Amino acid sequence: MDLRQLRYFAAVARERNFTRAAEILNIAQPPLSRQIQLLEEELGVTLIVRKSRPLKLTDAGRLFHEQALQVLGRVDQMKDATRRVGLNRNRVLSIGFVASTLYGGLPSLVRKLRRSAPELDIQLLEMLSIQQVAALKEGRIDLGFGRLKHGDPNISSTVLREERLVAALPQDTALARDSGPMPLAALSGQKLIVYPKEPRPSFADQILNLLQDEAVRPSEVLEVREIQTALGLVAADSGICIIPASARQMRSDVLYRLIEGPRAVSPVILSHREGDVSRYLDLVKRLIRDMYAENPAWLEASNVGAPIARAPDADTADD
């Protein structure tokens, strides 16, 4: 088994088609098929169900695909790190984030991190929570700030705080006439805009599940790709959107009301690879504690009670 075979298998697993995978890899299909066959013979198991269209992975194939992606990601990360050391370049720290965290503590944290570790080349990559889990396992990012809990044993996640949810309302709607906290029940019969449309599960599912649990039934649900689009549609009087409280800074041409109830919250979650003992991870956790201790205005306005300042020490996995 070699890295070439892992890359070949990863391409076939991604494309679910030998022909497309061969085109992407710039090789002929017969050699590609032969390499996958040799891989299966070495492992002694079938990885791909070839009779289905598109191709399907067996249970063994899914496990092997997940492990192969981690190996390939680590190899790419090792190559890049080695080049940087050889060329006297800075150490790279890649951070994945969901867009709404840009309106909370992420910018402040990154500024503190740059001052505390000037040797770091910090890369910020916008990606959804579910994408962060895969990116961490593949070695494409080192840390993730998201909102979706998961049960992956390879990823350690800590809920940093629970952020209040608010309803973004068109200026002329009847619900916007009151500035006080709004019960979820007020959304019954209203047109709701949720994001992101895909991939799922996502923040959209958090909101839809919350409404379902509270027996709140919107008249219509419109799914869009990103929060910016959702709030733009609210401004155009096309519906109501529920967002984290810190994201109220995004638009000033809509009105916002806090949503009542202890469950009307969205977690802010720090994720990293299980077993990561990097000193930079410890530094990030310390800076988060320091940042919360300062009690900045954005935290007071959006948090539920006190921030979970001990959380960065806990490494509590979300099961």
Rank of each mutant, 00 (worst) to 15 (best):
V110L: 15
V110E: 06
R111Y: 04
K112H: 10
K112W: 12
K112L: 10
K112D: 03
L113C: 06
L113W: 01
R115L: 12
R115N: 12
R115Q: 14
R115E: 13
S116R: 14
A117G: 05
P118R: 15
E119T: 12
L120C: 10
D121H: 13
I122F: 11
Q123L: 15
L124D: 03
L124I: 12
E126K: 14
E126S: 13
M127P: 05
L128P: 03
L128T: 02
I130E: 13
I130Q: 12
Q131G: 11
Q131C: 14
Q132W: 08
V133W: 11
V133D: 06
A134Y: 09
A134M: 14
A134F: 05
A135F: 11
K137S: 04
K137N: 07
E138F: 05
G139Q: 08
G139H: 09
G139S: 04
R140D: 05
I141Y: 03
D142H: 14
L143M: 11
L143S: 04
G144E: 01
F145A: 05
G146I: 04
H150I: 04
H150S: 05
G151S: 10
G151V: 07
G151D: 10
D152W: 07
I155V: 15
I155D: 04
S156W: 03
L160C: 12
E162H: 15
E162S: 14
E162Q: 15
R164L: 15
V166H: 11
A167W: 00
L169F: 10
L169P: 05
P170L: 13
Q171E: 08
D172C: 07
T173P: 01
T173C: 15
A174H: 09
R177Y: 00
D178G: 03
D178S: 07
S179A: 14
S179M: 13
P181E: 02
P181F: 00
M182L: 15
L184S: 03
A185F: 09
A186K: 10
A186C: 08
L187D: 01
G189M: 12
Q190L: 11
K191H: 07
L192V: 02
L192C: 09
I193E: 01
V194I: 12
P196D: 02
P199G: 06
P199N: 11
P199L: 07
R200G: 05
P201C: 11
S202I: 02
S202N: 09
S202D: 01
A204M: 11
A204P: 03
D205K: 10
D205Y: 06
N209K: 12
L210R: 07
L211C: 10
L211T: 00
D213G: 05
E214I: 00
A215V: 01
V216P: 05
R217M: 06
P218A: 02
V221D: 01
L222P: 02
L222D: 00
L222W: 00
E223R: 08
E223L: 08
V224S: 00
Q228Y: 03
Q228G: 03
Q228M: 03
Q228K: 07
T229W: 04
A230V: 00
A230M: 00
L231T: 00
L231I: 00
